[in-house]
């Protein structure tokens, strides 16, 4: 058993599961958006604005953003633990990734709720 404090859940099975669940959510969300684009005759600002007025669309979008966060973190953490062997350097990168993801999420909330 290898200890790992910085992985998403500290448990390989759960990390693996979260990565896959988030992938499924992102896949469905992608289809959802593509469907909207496909089915909307005139794709302009108004159409997008109205689409994002719906509370379910907002919630789904936020869920997708959360999934992206989860997915990216598991992936980035894996890559960093594979390739960056210096603990200090790896922690620095990990913090930068966390900050970036956190900012992205704030921006996502701001955008969705500004509609």
């Amino acid at each position: 058993m290898v200890k790992s404090a910085t992985s998403l859940t500290g448990n390989g099975v759960r990390d693996w599961l979260w990565q896959r669940v988030s992938a499924v959510i992102l896949a469905v969300y992608t289809l959802f958006i593509l469907g909207f684009i496909w089915l909307t005759p005139q794709l302009d600002y108004v159409a997008w604005f109205q689409f994002f007025q719906g509370i379910w669309v907002k919630l789904f979008t936020l869920l997708a953003a959360l999934s992206l966060l989860t997915h990216t973190w598991v992936g980035m953490w894996t890559i960093l633990t594979d390739y960056v062997k210096s603990t200090r350097l790896r922690l620095t990168f990990e913090i930068l990734v966390i900050i970036a993801l956190f900012l992205y999420f704030l921006v996502a909330i701001a955008i969705v709720w500004s509609v």
């Binding site: 290898v2 790992s4 992985s7 448990n11 390989g12 990390d15 633990t81």
Partner: peptide
């Protein structure tokens, strides 16, 4: 084997 490294 449940940790993130051994198998996963």
């Amino acid at each position: 084997l449940t940790d993130p490294f051994s198998v996963f």
